[in-house]
Amino acid sequence: MVTRQEQRERRRQEILGEALKLFVRKGYAGTKIGDIAEAVGMSAGLMFHYFDSKEALYEELIRFGVEGPMGMVGTMAAEGDALAFFEGASAGILEYLHADPATADMFVLMGNALMDDSVPESVKELLSGFDVHTPTAKVVRRGQREGTIREGDPVALSIAFWCAIQGIAEELALNPDMPCPDSAWIVDIVRKR
C-alpha cells in the first residue's frame, strides 16, 4: 500500500518533471506557476503546498543539475586511471541520455540557466559552484603523465570533451529519436593515439 508520504513525493517528482520541460522550452521568465500547475493537472494554489514559489522550484532543479555532475566528476576524477574516467563518464552519461529524455532536458536547462541574466540571485549563487573543467583538467594532466591522454591544454581538452556531451544532449532533447553516438567517439577527443 502506498503511503501518503510516497504519494506526495510522487506528485512532487511529477511537478519537477513537468517544470523541467517548461523551463527548457519557455525559459525561467517565460514559465508561469500556472503553466506548471496546468501541466500536472492541479490548481496554482495547490502547487504552493509542494513548492513555496516558482523560484524555489527552479532552484531545486538547478541544485540537482549542479550537485549531480559535480558529485560524479569529483568521485570519478579522484579514482582510477585518467582514460577510465573519460570512458566511464561518457558511457554513463550517454546511457542516461538514451534511457531518460529528462536527462537531456537537464543539460539544456543548465546551459540555458548559465546564460540567462533573468534567473534569481539564489540560482546564480548555485551556478557559481558549477565547474566541471577544473577537476576534469586535473584528470587530463594525470592522463598526460600516464601517456593515455593526448597533449594539449588540459582545460581546452576538458572543454572539448564536455561540449561534445552538451551538444549531444541538446540534440537529443530536440530530437529524441535520433541515434545516440558511441561513447568511444567522445573519448577519442582526449585519447592519445
Rank of each mutant, 00 (worst) to 15 (best):
L127C: 04
M106S: 10
R63K: 05
M106K: 14
E95H: 14
D100R: 08
P101T: 10
I36A: 07
I93K: 10
A113N: 05
A44L: 08
L109V: 04
V155N: 01
S118E: 13
D131W: 02
A39F: 03
W162T: 03
T148Q: 07
G74M: 03
G74Q: 07
T136Y: 04
V140W: 03
K54E: 01
D105G: 09
R150K: 12
T148D: 11
E87R: 13
A84L: 12
A169Q: 06
D105C: 09
G41V: 04
L97G: 06
R142F: 12
E38V: 12
Q166I: 14
V73W: 00
A102F: 10
I36N: 13
M110A: 02
E60L: 15
F51W: 09
D153I: 00
L97K: 13
L97F: 09
G68Q: 11
G74S: 02
H98R: 15
A156R: 05
W162L: 00
K54I: 07
D81K: 14
D105W: 09
R145D: 04
A44W: 02
A89R: 12
S53M: 04
L61P: 01
F64C: 06
E55W: 06
E151C: 02
E121W: 01
H49W: 12
G68D: 07
D81P: 11
A39L: 09
N112L: 14
F48W: 08
L127Y: 12
D81A: 10
T136Q: 01
L94N: 08
Q166S: 06
G88Y: 10
N112M: 12
I62L: 15
M42I: 13
Y96Q: 15
E151V: 08
M110Y: 13
L109T: 10
Y50E: 11
I149Q: 03
H49Q: 05
R150W: 03
D100N: 14
A44C: 02
F86P: 15
M42R: 04
P101R: 11
A84K: 15
S158A: 09
L94Y: 14
V66T: 02
S118C: 01
A56V: 05
A160F: 06
E59P: 00
C163M: 05
L97E: 08
E67N: 13
E55M: 08
M70H: 06
S90K: 08
C163V: 13
S122G: 01
S90R: 07
I62D: 06
R141M: 09
M42W: 03
E170M: 07
R63W: 07
S53F: 03
E55A: 05
L57R: 08
F107C: 15
A169S: 05
E125H: 06
I165N: 00
G68T: 12
A99D: 02
C163A: 15
L109Q: 09
A137L: 02
A91I: 07
D52P: 15
M115V: 15
S128A: 13
P154D: 06
V119G: 03
V139N: 01
R145C: 03
A56R: 05
T136S: 01
G152N: 04
L57W: 09
G71S: 10
L46N: 11
L46E: 08
E151S: 07
A82F: 14
K124G: 10
P101V: 15
H133D: 05
A39Q: 10
G111Q: 04
W162P: 04
L114N: 13
P154V: 03
A78M: 11
E59C: 08
A82H: 04
A82Q: 09
V155R: 00
Q144T: 02
A91R: 14
M106Y: 11
